[in-house]
Amino acid sequence: MSEEGTAVKLGRKDFQSDQEVRWCPGCGDYSILAAMQLFLPEVGVKPENMVFVSGIGCAARFPYYMNVYGMHGIHGRAPALATGVALARPDLDVWVITGDGDSLSIGGNHLIHALRRNVNMKIIVFNNQIYGLTKGQYSPTSEVGKVTKSSPFGSLDTPFNPLSVALGAEGTFVARTHDMDRAHMVEIFRRAHDHQGTAFVELYQNCNVFNDGAFEAITGKEVRSDMLIDLKHGEPIRFGADGSKGVVLNQFGECEIADVAEVGEDRLLVHDEHREDPTLAFALSRLADRPTTPTPIGVFRDVQRPSYEAEVQRQLVISSEKQGPPDLGALLGAGATWDVS
């Protein structure tokens, strides 16, 4: 965190490294990088107090382009590496940049355990529903039937719903945004950063080379107002050009889309991101099975739970109060000893 009281004036340039950015031309990653570099100056944390950790994949190149401390780790392990960083140094701002294959396939275990521990790190999952770096195999978020080089007759694997996974793993902050809306990305980054604990952000990202247009049906400028449901805490959930559509709960507690005129405003679900119980957030995460039907974006869940490293720090303090200052000689000689003369 930045030093108390000293206003740090930083600009986009302070977060740009000297490395040439090398994603495919037109890749959604460019706009995410730009959004991040535009956003970070407002946080007021100096670049030297930020650590970006990544695994493997196209997204994992991200830290190289940031003028912060960075680690390009190994496939899937970024949450574990970042846990080490955050555990050792709670003073640092820790971000994890990962993709759908990195975080939900090879690194699934680390992801869910980071979430349940509530380590203070911000995990941004660039979900493009494909393996880009290895040139186009289906990923754990690809739809059933997806034809790729490794699934010429269509993928048989039921995909993960990343938000459902994060909510099921006791995530305390779970949100979604997309690469076509810089302002929304910045807003979600800000909310994620403000959260104490693990923030999980699913970011729909277009891989224009291997899975172009995967999110076009919902993120295209012309369709957005009808297809993206912008969640706002405390407000009835509605969307559509004139707010004519809304989300209601059916008798089973599942979310459904309804015509506001038909059901009446009172029946609309009022979004409450602070609910302790994740059931409603989970129901919302199931509203759109695939990014082809109206899809909620924004913050699904934001609840308070002590961060892991804060609790570790607490134990360190309690132990030193209880056990006293470290005394190596006393430690080694503890218990039964005898003297030989």
């Binding site: 650590v51 950790v53 401390y69 392990r77 574990a80 590496l81 080490g84 960083v85 640092l92 680390h110």
Partner: peptide, 10 residues
């Protein structure tokens, strides 16, 4: 990996 992350920070 946690140990490596911690080493990175000193």
């Amino acid at each position: 990996n946690v140990a490596i992350g911690a080493s990175f920070t000193g």
